[in-house]
Design a protein around this nucleic acid. Structure first.
Lengths: 245, 245
DNA sequence: GGCACGGAAATTGTTAACAAGTATAGTCAT
DNA sequence: ATGACTATACTTGTTAACAATTTCCGTGCC
């Protein structure tokens, strides 16, 4: 029934082990370490995170509800593989939601939020100039997430969090390899400037253009690669430790 | 992270027992049988639905992700109790999403969808004239759900499904008792007419007014009542059958 | 009468084990 | 060499039992 309302779920289950796993998976997806279609077997995740399978299952159910995993019966959960149609729908939904978010946020940024955004902008620019493609994407995503966090409407913010995740899967799936060069460096900064000026209309227009530009450079000819779960999540498996002779 | 994307999750888990439970709970909430704050203990639901607790837990995790239940650690899940602020945010989000949905749906209704909507309109009117308050609400919700189902953008449709559920909880929580009389009978019909005419702008405007009118007549002085789970879900518990004699 | 304390009941958290289904690889026949 | 077939390994589904926590109620004290 539901796949949005991401948000940080404030006090309730921060110490829930299932939540730690869900956060790790989301983080890995945002950092493009888990391409679309990647299988996530319960037992494997249970090993990697050193927890019971039931706990993994809880995280998996949640992530499936978020729409970033797909679960078929008696089969491993996999990272969602949004079709061309769904990708278009995701971008349309995100334009609608994120534009409203910036409208509501215009002129309402706290000093701390403004400062954090500025830092993200700098980090992003640095990464771009250094040619650190993955880093730039990471900071770019953080920019949008901070926008969501700054939105006074928490419901919309949660929806945007979910859409950011899902669109990032689609982008990783359909992006063209040499995409970094086409990155429009000042988009984010212009949006912040409109926000500072309290110009909600301008901010929304810039966001629409920004997202449309991103969508326009997908080419729908994907390639998926396999990954090592243990390496990504930084844990040892030691199921078959080699004994030195 | 996520609480939206309701939708029917087409092929994957239709036969999943956890799904049956989740659907029953959603249905009960939509029919105002489970007021906000109602506790839903795992063992009790396991009894009522004659399944294992793990299955119930799966449904509960999902419904929590949907934002219609809240789960605190070591405590029973309860039906969400949206605050005044969250209710306002829910309505704002729903206006945004549902207006876009009707915009996209205008002039794009299939014959079957059009016919189903017409029937719902008739049912709603009949229920209203008969003074069947609960029935009228049921058909009214069905109207909005059918609109979501008709939307070509499935992502937005899923988000709307979730928002309809959550706003219905808020409405049940904050509605004034004698609300039936204030129901604006022709709102839904006018929207359909705009949809038929392909007038997306008019349809969106009518929907905004419709939702704002609904929100405006909440009074934020709630009263919650307890309920009998077994009676609602129509199952026997027989934990302590009274022996005659 | 109200409040603090304590114990019992109820409830969720966690785990292990088994059952059932699916995918993989190897074999054999064509 | 290719195809179907079978056995094996892998993965998820389901269940029961125990541990930890919370809630509820009754008691005693102020």
């Amino acid at each position: 029934m539901s796949e949005f309302l991401q948000q940080s779920e404030p006090p309730t289950a921060t110490d829930d082990p299932a939540w730690r796993i869900a956060r790790s998976v989301r983080h890995a997806i945002l950092n493009q370490q888990l391409p679309a279609g990647t299988r996530l077997p319960e037992s494997r995740l249970a090993q990697v995170f050193a927890v019971n399978r039931a706990i993994v299952r809880k995280a998996l159910v949640r992530l499936t509800a978020d729409g970033i995993l797909t679960s078929r019966r008696n089969q491993s959960a996999t990272v969602a593989e949004p079709s061309r149609e769904e990708t278009a729908e995701l971008f349309a939904a995100r334009r609608l939601v994120e534009c409203e978010v910036v409208r509501l946020t215009a002129g309402a940024l706290s000093a701390g939020q403004r400062q954090a955004l500025e830092k993200t902008l700098d980090d992003e620019r640095s990464a771009h100039e250094a040619g650190a493609h993955d880093q730039r994407i990471h900071h770019s995503l953080a920019f949008h997430q901070q926008l969501a966090a700054a939105c006074p409407n928490r419901v919309l913010a949660g929806m945007l969090d979910g859409l950011i995740l899902r669109t990032s899967i689609a982008v990783a799936l359909y992006k063209v390899p040499g995409m970094a060069a086409c990155y429009r460096e000042d988009d984010h900064r212009h949006i912040i400037e409109a926000l500072d000026a309290g110009d909600s209309k301008q901010a929304a227009a810039l966001m629409t253009a920004h997202l449309s530009h991103l969508e326009a450079r997908l080419d729908y000819a994907r390639a998926q690669n396999t990954v090592d779960l243990a390496a990504i999540f930084g844990a040892a498996t030691d199921t078959q430790p080699a004994s030195p002779g």
